[in-house]
């Protein structure tokens, strides 16, 4: 079966989250799209239409598998059954990347279905490192860890987030997924500089970028409270931050996340094209400056 598939490597292009609403359009029109990404937990059934469509789409496109339920940042040991199901999925589809979040979603026996925040301390660093090590060993491959969006912080934190991520990479050898919308959401929510965050980020370890739309709100003190809703277009300031990011990293596989109020295929595909345009203008600018080295 794998012989009939395109290469698994994600190109440095725009891609989109695969939604059931678009299965047929994609298979019928074979659009020019860099890659697709799926949430691992949506494809953990034994069979049925989800796998039928995903197998067909994987033949024509590279795939990224993005986990939302492993609870890497949790205090409890990882769910061994879930890890085994993840391994089966990754083995079945041979994705170009597997990524998960610096967050937790399970405590004791309960699964909360949200990416919950953790304090950044020596204790949580050790937890996360152990969990990533276990995941990478079990899957037999490197994983990427994504920076979270946050609405709260913890008084007990002793690390900056960028420092914490850098330390995790050093100790586990994992790569990073930089969610630029998350950077903008968190920085706005805490009144800090999103550009400063990008400038401090250990970009040499970034292998994929995420972009998505946020829903604006305000907190009880009247400060902006942005919600990482993935329910609309990528906002203009996030595109600007993305251009700054690409300026540091060069072109990278860039995913548009749109998970609620799913638009028509054309609207979604247009967002991915915008990422392509941003990357192309960066490459052109570098060429003009004569400092572009191919292969970076």
């Amino acid at each position: 079966m794998s012989a009939q598939r395109v290469n698994s490597t994600l190109p440095a292009r725009g891609g989109v989250g695969l939604k059931a609403e678009h299965y047929r359009t994609i298979l019928n029109s074979k659009p020019d799209m860099g890659f697709f990404e799926v949430h691992a937990e949506n494809y953990m059934g034994a069979g049925g239409p989800p796998h039928g469509y995903l197998e067909a789409i994987r033949r024509d496109y590279p795939l990224s598998i993005h986990g939302v339920g492993l609870s890497i940042g949790g205090a409890n040991p990882l769910n061994k059954n879930h890890l085994a199901r993840l391994k089966a999925l990754v083995d079945r589809y041979d994705p170009g990347m597997f990524s998960e979040h610096l967050a937790w979603s399970t405590h004791d026996t309960q699964y909360y279905n949200d990416l919950l925040p953790l304090p950044y301390t020596d204790v949580t660093l050790q937890q996360v490192v152990e969990h990533i090590d276990e995941t990478q060993t079990h899957l037999g491959r490197q994983m990427l860890l994504e920076n979270p969006s946050a609405y709260v912080t913890f008084t007990q934190s002793t690390y900056e987030e960028t420092e914490f991520l850098n330390e995790i990479v050093k100790r586990t050898g994992c790569g990073l997924l930089l969610d630029v919308n998350n950077v903008f959401v968190s920085a706005t929510n805490f009144g800090s500089s999103p550009e400063g965050y990008i400038d401090r980020f250990p970009v040499e370890h970034v292998q994929e970028i995420h972009l998505g739309g946020y829903a604006p709100d305000t907190d009880e003190r009247g400060y902006p409270l942005l919600i990482d809703a993935h329910d609309r277009k990528v906002a203009d300031p996030v595109w600007a931050l993305y251009a700054r990011t690409i300026g540091r990293t060069g072109p990278l596989p860039t995913l548009i996340e749109w998970d609620a109020d799913i638009p028509t295929w054309d609207v979604l595909a247009f967002e991915a094209e915008q990422a392509d345009v941003t990357m192309q203008s960066h490459v052109q600018a570098e060429k003009r400056r004569g400092s572009y080295a191919s292969g970076i």
Partner: peptide
């Protein structure tokens, strides 16, 4: 220990 902007406790954010 869970706080919002400027270290203020925030019902809305949690």
């Amino acid at each position: 220990g869970v706080v919002g902007r400027d270290g203020a406790v925030s019902q809305m954010r949690y």
